[in-house]
Design a binder for these strands. Sequence first.
RNA 1: CGGGGCGUGGCGCAGCCUGGUAGCGCACCUGCUUUGGGAGCAGGGGGCCGCAGGUUCAAAUCCUGCCGCCCCGACCA
Length: 575
Amino acid sequence: MRWSQLFIPTHRETPHEADVVSHQLLLRAGYIRQLAAGLYSYLYLARRSLLKIEQVIREEMDAIGAQEMFLPELHPAKVWQKSGRWDAIGHDMFRLQDRWGHDLCLGMTEEEVMTSIATGELRSYKQLPQLWYQIQAKFRDEPRPKSGLIRARRFTMKDSYSFDLDAAGLDVSYKKHHAAYCRIFDRCGLKYITVEAHSGEMGGSQSHEFAAPSDAGEDVIVLCKGCGYAANLEMARSTPRPPTQPDSAEDLPPEEFHTPGKKTIAEVAAFDGSPETSHIKSLVIVADQKPYLVLLRGDHSLNEAKLGSAIAATKVRPAHPEEIREWFGADAGSLGPVGVKELTILTDEALRNRRDLICGANRDHYHLRHVTPGRDFETSFADLRDVAEGDACAQCGKPLTLRKCIEVGHIFKLDRRYSESMGLSVLDPNGKEVTPIMGSYGIGLERILATSVEQNHDDAGMVLPASIAPFEAIITPVNLKNDAQRQASESLYEDCRSQGIDVIYDNRGERAGVKFSDADLIGIPYRFTIGKKISEGIVELKDRSTRQSTDVRLEEAAMRLAEELAKAVDPSAST
RNA sequence: CGGGGCGUGGCGCAGCCUGGUAGCGCACCUGCUUUGGGAGCAGGGGGCCGCAGGUUCAAAUCCUGCCGCCCCGACCA
């Protein structure tokens, strides 16, 4: 491609609406333009990158025997009603009606459609397993789209679905996907970790997330440098730091004391000189319409996903102030478990075997001291808290660290949730009707691009790996008006093309500095610079990531780069 | 949905407080010079100042309402 004919609208200045690096650079480098909140047009460069990412994914999915399909993005309500998600999902789904008043939605994911195809067609265990996938647009009416391509309302997902006869089969399909995903992210040059994750609304028994470390991420991953333990914050377990001050051995009854205007744990702790670890934090939570009193150590915070799992609730929310007033006769800030009868009390494990603690008295401006779980109130225990930086690893005892990550892929064992609700069954070898077991597996294509930019950039712009960069190389003549330089550029351009190198020729009449800056900004991994040394038959080959430049002979230049690319591209080619 | 910020040529911004000719840098067009890291000089084009009402002789500027975008939180497969 010749740059002079292309539309690559680069900007010198950072657009004001973007504040994460990938968003800024994708806009500045002319990859994308915003149409509305969470909706982006992919211009030429982004399109090329995304097609390359798509092709990597396609190759690896095909390699595990998955079959690509193409499904409608517009779904009739009835398939979602059948699975029960039409009502379960709420505002995240884009809904519309056709001219007859029939309800439709834009697809957020394809469990329902894929399963409905299977329901019509799969009849025998002999047809299993099946691995089906598609690479298509997904629509989610996010409460808050943000960070450019990282959380958009329309994005591209590769989603695949496995149908197996039994759990052992699902295990095989799941492992195949896990391995394929590792190859995909390796080939795309991402740094990532795989962690156990929370299944959320997808349901199912097991899930793993592919988490790419980045400050622009919204996921928090807990890591142990000692033993390699890694888990999503929603699943992670730890041994909390011991209380700052040991509990009193005395056996005193609860005693009310006046705490005028002190509401937060920090305020009460400062007021009476006790450490926060000797306090009970009381949170009122409504889970599936049922109220709970949730107790945590004063310095800990609640993880709502863990709570949801502990009580098998799907919808968890903090109680409204009026509800709290009605149930406790006091406001948040003076709440506690003593005397509470109507609400189920759940207590975090960190408070097990603790005694002589401080909590609210259910009377405004009063707290209780000498409170002991089990003696002064009935409760059950569960792991409900967020792991905190510096907690000890539950496996090896070393301190844990927290890392923000972008979720680039997620695989789920769905079990029979969808096959059952959608009425999928086949005959087993004994002629008995059985319900196949399913898995679902997703990768966000734009997130791979955005994450790559997040992980690979410098002050000049993006530094993309050759596998996903819009071009593998760029030819930059320093001065186009110089005949020798121009002719050499033309001939190198032809050489590169005959070597199969995806190359762009910057034949614009710009000054060298402009062309260098643009090439750096858009992140092309290799640059041929054709300048004065062409009189000796020499061109420079510069590596964008190392910024190292080597002199090569013009005649050998394309071949040299082709060899270099063959080394870098596709480390998994042998498998 | 709660809190905050911002809407002025394509991009980045000033002007608004204290009402009176819409301005700067970059980009763009023409010409000349220049050509190894975002050139110089000269000339030029481009604006519903987010939208709608109101106040006023007069509104980018003051008032009211709405819309859009961004950030924090809530929320989120």
